[in-house]
Design a protein around this nucleic acid. Structure first.
Length: 456
RNA sequence: GCCGGGGUGCCCUAGCCAGGAAGGGGGCUGGCCUGGAGAGCCAGUGGCCCACUGGGCCGCGAGGGUUCAAAUCCCUCCCCCGGCGCCA
């Protein structure tokens, strides 16, 4: 049983180097790890030999005569000192090697586009008929170049999602939230609260119909498990620590849903295992100062419905396609035009071997913006957390996949722009109707501006 | 939070007091047997290293310590069960 990256390191290091080059990462770590691994194996072999000799002596001690005993103890002590020395060396070498191994990202899939950053991401398909204000036509043409995307030209300017929420509808307040909690927090009121609840129920309904098991996970996790599900860069920049405790607030339910099976062994008939998590997500958003500062597009906390798959290795690529299709169905039913983008290797997180984003059209910005991320992490997480597949005695690591089904705040932003009428009223997607119907106070067809914010 | 009892391989369990190669049962997999099944019998069923008909090392919740030698003794931590306290 071996991790694909470790196996590649030992049997075909060039594959690993090619993958790192594709990600625009340095390849010298591969040679370094290879060297440390060779030294470690040599030292372990020697250590095992020494321990064997010492064990032989130790086993003879209880049966030895008193005279012999003193001599044997003396020899065992001498060997023990050498063993200790070598143990320290082995520990040092394996720690250095593992530090490198743990920093190595997944081997990228052959279909992943090459390129250092998100400008090399490749759109693979478009859906819907975007409404394009005249002022944004040029940008729309840029965003859809190479594709013949049908669109509807509008002769008025939709309000941006932030202004629509806070100034037109007056059902959100990020200024007050900033005073109380800081930037990137929000208060949402009235119809938007109902809208968020309906979105969660709609996504949960849609995904559970496909056999996914709904899960409410813990919202905090220990560091040990966090390092099993994510890479250090993401960890440092996005995860909140609870002061004085070995606990971190989850950045997505993917993390506790993957850690849930740490150390477990699946049999073949237990896979695929499908889960849909619902949870708040907490993100520091370090290093994003100045980006999307208005409204609730980029915030420290939001609710997300998340699809998780544990699959047999040979089925994971098929599941990757299915997960993104599931997400697409949600946005089709919400009548939000989008495109699917194949993320370039240089823009890919360490866990993922391939990632699709679903980007919704935002008429006021004249851009497609990320609403969904869908990754195949292959055996990167399962190796770290020892999540295995037992194939009649032979063991492999399972593959893990994750995809957003629906993140509430960003979806609300997309609805506010795409379903906005010229008079400022926002039409509620019809598919949400059944999740609003039971509640007297909930809006049913449209969200209309209210006179005053509730807190005033 | 306090007191007590626990954590042993896929599951259950013995071993712990009194340190000296982790034993038994169940399940599963393979083999023998059978017309077939069952029973019975045999083997395998954690990780790693070297050699590739084999051998060895580590592993008893995690990490340290004592010792020639630790599942066993000592320390710290985690988790589970019971009782008390607190509590939506």
């Amino acid at each position: 049983m071996s991790w694909s990256v470790l196996e590649a390191l030992r049997t075909n290091p060039d594959v690993l180097k090619e993958s790192l080059k594709k990600r625009y990462l340095p390849t010298d770590l591969v040679d370094k790890a290879l060297e440390l691994d060779a030294k470690w194996r040599e030292a372990v072999t020697e250590l095992n030999r020494l321990r064997e000799r010492r064990n032989e002596i130790n086993r003879a001690i209880p049966r030895a005569s008193p005279d012999e005993r003193q001599e044997l103890i003396k020899r065992s002590k001498e060997l023990g000192a050498k063993v200790k020395e070598l143990e320290d060396l082995v520990k040092k070498l394996s720690e250095e090697r593992d530090a490198i191994l743990m920093s190595l990202p997944s081997i990228v899939h052959e279909s992943v586009p090459e390129g250092p950053d998100d400008t090399y991401n490749v759109p693979v398909r478009f859906w819907g008929v975007p409404r394009v204000p005249k002022s944004k036509l040029e940008r729309f043409k840029e965003e859809t170049s190479g594709f013949d995307v049908e669109y509807q030209l509008v002769d008025w300017e939709p309000k941006g999602h932030a202004d629509e929420l806070e100034l037109v509808l007056k059902q959100g307040d990020t200024l007050k939230a900033a005073q109380v909690s800081g930037s990137r927090f929000f208060y949402l009121f009235k119809d938007i609260v109902w809208l968020e609840q309906a979105l969660i129920m709609f996504a949960l309904d849609h995904i559970t119909k496909k056999g996914f098991i709904p899960v409410l996970p813990p919202y905090m996790m220990r560091e040990q498990y966090y390092l099993g599900v994510t890479d250090l860069e993401t960890f440092k920049d996005s995860i909140y620590k609870v002061e004085g405790e070995d606990l971190y607030l989850i950045a997505t339910s993917e993390h506790p849903l993957i850690a849930m099976h740490a150390g477990d062994t699946f049999t073949e008939d237990e896979l695929p295992r499908l889960y849909v998590g619902v949870s708040p997500c907490f993100r520091k958003e370090a290093g994003t100062h100045g980006k999307d500062t208005k409204g609730i597009f980029r915030v420290h906390q939001f609710t997300k419905v998340e699809q998780i798959v544990y699959s047999k290795p040979e089925e994971s690529w098929e599941w990757h396609e299915r997960l993104i299709r599931n997400a697409e169905e949600i946005y089709q039913q919400l009548e939000i035009p989008y495109r699917i983008v194949n993320i370039a290797a240089g823009d890919l997180g360490a866990c993922a071997a391939k990632k699709y984003d679903l980007e919704a059209w935002f008429p006021a910005q004249g851009r497609y913006r990320e609403l969904v991320s869908c990754s195949n992490c292959v055996d990167w997480q399962s190796y770290r957390l020892r999540i295995k597949l037992d194939r009649k005695g032979r063991r492999e690591f399972v593959h893990t996949l994750n995809s957003t089904a629906l993140a509430t705040t960003r979806t609300i932003c997309a609805i506010l722009e795409n379903h906005q009428r010229e008079d400022g009223v926002v039409e509620i997607p019809k598919v949400l109707r059944r999740y609003l119907e039971p509640f007297e106070a909930a809006p049913k067809e449209v969200i209309e501006p209210i006179k005053k914010l509730l807190k005033e």
